[in-house]
Each structure stands twice: as C-alpha cells, then as structure tokens.
C-alpha cells in the first residue's frame, strides 16, 4: 500500500438524509469496521478535513451549506457521495423539494451505492477516495513546481 502515505480526515455532512447512511458512516469509524485503524478520523472542522462524505439528497437549503463547507476545505479534497440518495435521490427523486443527488451541486469523485450503504461499501469508497486524494496531491505538487 505504498500509495497510502497520508491519513486523511473525513468531514461528514448530512444533507437531506434519513439517517440510515449516517449511522452506517458513524459505524464505519467504530470498533467492528474501524476506519480509524488507517488513521482516518471523523472531524467537525472543515478546515481539517480532506474528504467530504455527504449523505442524503440535496434540497435548496442544503445547497448553500454544502457550498460553504466545500469552500472552507483546503485543496486537495475529495467528495464521496454515500448512499443512493446522494447519488440520485433514491425513492425521493420525484419529491417537490428534492433537487437530486449531490453531483447537482458539487463535483463528486466517489459514489457509494446502497440504501442504506453498508459499512464495507463505505470503507471501499473511502479507500478509493484516498487513492484519488494521493493522485491530486501529486498533481498539485507538480503544478507548484
């Protein structure tokens, strides 16, 4: 795992989720599934975070909050859309207040399917996000010379 040099921190934001995927994200960070063994911690501060894990679909009120969080995170950053609601809206696609998935607002790098997404899938998604993060670090380093 030579590419896994850094331990990114996750910022988890719940847009209009039903909490199912949120519970599974929290569970991924606790003893049985333990993302923390990789050094990945759940942080509350956007300026400390590398990965933004978003659950739930997007409605008008969460657009502003998501953009706010995204702007506060330092580069390079990765967005993970956890659960079907964040990908496309799940059963709530036709609702009047749901705009759709997170990619309507932010550029998503990793999509984790499931309703609710299983912890194993979430871990897979976060590891994939770490790989993408490493790639972005290298590109950023090249650009800065």
């Amino acid at each position: 795992m030579a590419w896994f040099k850094r331990s990114p921190w996750i910022l988890h934001y719940n847009a209009t989720s039903c909490n199912g995927c949120d519970t599974e994200v929290i569970v991924s960070l606790t003893p049985l599934y333990d993302l923390e063994r990789f050094g990945i911690i759940n942080t509350g501060n956007p300026k400390h975070a590398d990965i933004l894990a978003v659950t739930g679909s997007v409605n008008e009120k969460s657009v502003q909050v998501l953009k706010n969080l995204y702007d506060q995170m330092p580069n390079p950053k990765v967005i993970v859309a956890v659960g079907l609601c964040a990908i496309s809206g799940c059963v709530f696609q036709d609702c009047y207040n749901v705009m759709g998935g997170v990619d309507k607002v932010l550029p998503v790098d990793v999509y984790v399917p499931g309703c609710a997404a299983r912890p194993e899938a979430i871990i897979d998604g976060v590891i994939m996000a770490c790989e993408i993060l490493e790639k972005k670090y290298r590109e950023q380093k090249k650009r800065r010379g």
């Binding site: 409605n59 008008e60 009120k61 009047y96 207040n97 705009m99």
Partner: peptide, 8 residues
Amino acid sequence: YRTSIKTP
C-alpha cells in the same frame, strides 16, 4: 419551511 415551490 423554505420549499422550492410555495405552499406545496
């Protein structure tokens, strides 16, 4: 409630 359509 701030909804995307008024009085849904």
